[in-house]
Amino acid sequence: MLEALKKTYRCVCTIEERFISFTLCAITVLIFVSAIGRFVGRPINWAVDISLLLFAWGAFLGADVGIRKNRVINVDFLTSRLPLKTQKTLAVAWSVIIILFLAVLIAYGIPLCISNFKRQFQNITLSYSFVTASLPVSAFLMIISTGIRLHLQITDFPSTLRGGGRDVA
């Protein structure tokens, strides 16, 4: 059961990373082509909207990957002087607060998507909710990543410190 779950999660992670790579390449191509298009008198006005849509998803999913790969930075010159036990308590508390905050973003993000579905993009007939949805969806994945990190902080705290860094998943 747990193995199957882990396998599924790894699969989700792979898809996530591939998708982010895709958004980055697509944005680059779209911006490039639309600039040339405008220069030769054939502007592609939807290119910007699509780029921004892809960017919202790429950015927040990328943030999740950053959390998973232990890349978020924090200031530790004060905390590193505290006893290891206090450090651990603080780190655990922060992870719990982060998870709660992300949960709030989901809880209020989904209704926002639904209640303001009528809001449109500038140039294309597409609901802006598809942009807004990027946050709650990514926040859900971030909760999983932070949760795994939290587990690691409880079971093997030193490995989560800067320098002892390793991917949390």
């Binding site: 980055l24 944005i27 680059t28 911006i31 910007v48 780029s51 921004l52 960017f55 919202a56 790429g58 950015a59 927040f60 709030v104 973003l105 209020y108 993000g109 209704p111 926002l112 942009v131 807004t132 990027s134 946050l135 709650p136």
Partner: peptide, 26 residues
């Protein structure tokens, strides 16, 4: 309302000019 925090976070990604950031990192 709390939902506005969601909007403000998402809105940070919706500036055409700021698309320059990912492009230059890339």
């Amino acid at each position: 309302p709390i939902s506005i925090s969601v909007q403000r976070i998402v809105a940070q990604t919706q500036s055409f000019t700021l698309l320059a950031i990912p492009l230059f990192i890339f």
